[in-house]
């Protein structure tokens, strides 16, 4: 009546397996694989060309990545509003406006981000693709992975990225008349505009304020403080 399967994989995936996945993907989609990054014994990132987003999904599904984990996006523009918890008395710092992409690089402000898992080989891959700045529209994965349907709806609502071939891009979370794309960095949190972050009075004293602790912690703090 009940299957009892308890055989763990012989060995958890190594970097050799991840390199093999990258090579396999390159064989399937060719030059559309722009960049790849392997964090040793940890994780794998690939970045593909915008036009071959769907093709990548098809190739990875054929390569055994049948489990759909999530799909989302990142807005790489630094927030023009800062983190809203700086000392109100301090000199305003010139906000950093340079757009710096993360792992595997990129050229545009918005990047699409998805993760697929191979349940047999016990390995996952994070796929990134640039979203064009002028027309934020990508191909939809919803016919490829059924689970991508809702994730793309969420992504459309939060980032304003359109998806070609998606059946229904209605708002999922917010009322239909909501204006703006909340997860874009230029979306202001109005409550923070009218009221400064109250937590600023609660932070522990800085190490420099109390001399004894500063000396004791100096060795461990390193350059992090």
């Amino acid at each position: 009546m009940t299957a009892e399967a308890d055989d763990a994989p012989a060995a958890l995936p190594g970097d050799g397996l991840r390199e093999g996945i990258v090579d396999d993907l390159r064989a399937r989609i060719g030059d559309s694989l722009v960049d790849s990054h392997i964090a040793p014994n940890d994780d794998l990132w690939v970045r593909v060309a915008t036009a071959s987003w769907r093709e990548t999904g098809e190739a990875l599904k054929a390569a055994g990545f049948t489990y759909f984990c999530f799909l989302s996006a990142i807005d790489w523009m630094p927030s023009p509003y800062g983190k809203g918890e700086d000392d109100p008395d301090a000199e305003p710092v010139e906000p950093d406006t340079e757009i710096k992409q993360g792992v595997t690089g990129g050229e545009t402000r918005l990047q699409l981000l998805a993760r697929l898992t191979d349940l047999d080989r016990h390995v996952g891959v994070t796929i990134k693709a640039d979203v064009p700045d002028d027309a934020a529209v990508m191909d939809s994965w919803s016919t490829l992975y059924a689970g991508a349907n809702w994730h793309e709806r969420e992504c459309h609502e939060m980032f304003g990225i359109g998806f070609n071939g998606h059946p229904d891009l209605r708002n999922m979370y917010l009322p239909t008349d909501f204006e703006g794309y909340p997860l874009r960095k230029d979306f202001p949190l109005l409550a923070r505009m009218v009221k400064p972050w109250p937590g600023i009075v609660d932070v522990e004293p800085m190490p420099a304020d109390d001399e004894d602790d500063a000396d004791a912690d100096a060795g461990t703090d390193g350059d992090a403080t």
Partner: peptide, 11 residues
């Protein structure tokens, strides 16, 4: 860990 936690850049 340091008292003021700054997490290095990365993903």
């Amino acid at each position: 860990v340091p008292r003021i936690i700054k997490v290095p850049a990365g993903e």
